[in-house]
């Protein structure tokens, strides 16, 4: 039976560890002079993206190509989606063309969960609404593992727009399973009700959220949320929740600074910390390709077990 990657909610700690372990060898491939393996030779990977994306889509596409897969991209504009075709019909059409792996991004939570049972292809969730973005969390965890040696016992602080973030949910599910401690921080208007029931501590000051942290992760603030009364201005957000060199000192001296990107310079983080010694933002991007190679390779071989 095929396996999908819909979210880290559904994976066991063992499965997550297996992906991270596999990603290590993929990173070797990725950093070698000739980036080509036969792992997905003869397999077809289709990227179906209903939202704009640069890094995630390119990351999946390159990961597929480095492993010799046939890779194709579809975006919602300029396709049958724009003609009003339903998601189910579009996915079944792609499936009928011999797709082995369907990578999906959609603005609605649960969209890949709707499709997965209907297609033969393994579905990878590349971000669904505010729900999950499992490969992002996997690359975050891979980065932490690489830098810190272990996830267990790490204190991870995530600061920003918690409500609308699929990155935060996947990270909570994954990090908790591997034994990390997670705190979230942000304006009360951007922290969703009941998130503490996911096993995290919640703070509404940046100091409390990041004090003593091993990892400080920022989340993108979308400027249009200002119009919905969620925060007064970018300036005020930065004043109370932005992280600069002074605030970063609340975290451990060797704390990692992470961000899923794209960063608003001067809003979530100051340029000095983005380009500073604790930042691993660019390595996250590299690791994203390795993790996606691992995920696709394992799925093509039957699963993560």
């Amino acid at each position: 039976m095929k396996q999908d990657l819909l979210g880290l909610k559904d994976l066991s700690a063992e499965e997550i560890k297996n992906i991270l372990e596999t990603a290590k060898s993929m990173k070797v491939v990725l950093t070698s002079p000739s980036k080509k393996t036969p792992h997905l030779q003869g397999k077809t990977v289709v990227n179906l993206f209903y939202e704009n994306s640069t890094r995630t889509r390119l990351s999946f596409e390159l990961a597929a190509k480095y492993m010799s897969a046939n890779a194709a991209n579809i975006s919602s504009s300029g396709s049958s989606v724009a003609k009003g075709e339903t998601l189910i019909d579009t996915a079944e059409t792609i499936n009928a063309m011999g797709t082995d792996i369907l990578v999906m991004r959609h603005d609605m939570s649960g969209a890949p969960h709707l499709i997965a049972p209907l297609v033969d292809a393994s579905v990878i969730n590349a971000g669904d609404g505010m729900n999950e973005h499992p490969t992002q969390a996997l690359l975050d965890m891979f980065t932490m593992l690489e830098k810190k040696g272990s996830i267990e016992g790490l204190k991870v602080a995530i600061v920003g727009d918690i409500t609308h973030s699929r990155v935060v949910r996947s990270n909570i599910y994954g990090l908790k399973k591997l034994g990390a401690e997670v705190t979230v921080g942000g304006p009360a208007t951007l922290v969703p009700q009941g998130i503490e029931q996911m096993g995290v501590k919640v703070f509404t000051t940046v100091h409390e959220a990041i004090v003593g942290a091993d990892v400080v992760m920022g989340l993108r603030i979308q400027l249009e949320r200002q119009k919905k009364g969620l925060f007064p201005s970018v300036r005020e957000y930065n004043r109370f929740f932005g992280i600069d060199e002074t605030r970063l000192k609340f975290a451990k001296p060797d704390a990692l600074l992470m961000h899923p990107g794209p960063v608003n310079r001067g809003v979530e983080f100051s340029s000095s910390v983005i380009d500073g010694p604790q930042s691993v933002i660019n390595e996250q991007v590299t690791n994203g390709v390795a993790v996606r190679m691992a995920v696709m390779y394992l799925l093509s071989r039957g699963g993560f077990k």
């Binding site: 909610k9 939570s109 649960g110 669904d128 609404g129 505010m130 729900n131 999950e132 699929r166 949910r169 969703p192 009700q193 009941g194 998130i195 029931q197 996911m198």
Partner: peptide, 13 residues
């Protein structure tokens, strides 16, 4: 409904 179940599923409450 707004609450832990909606939050865990990433659905607006």
């Amino acid at each position: 409904n707004e609450g832990p179940v909606a939050t865990a599923m990433g659905l607006r409450g």
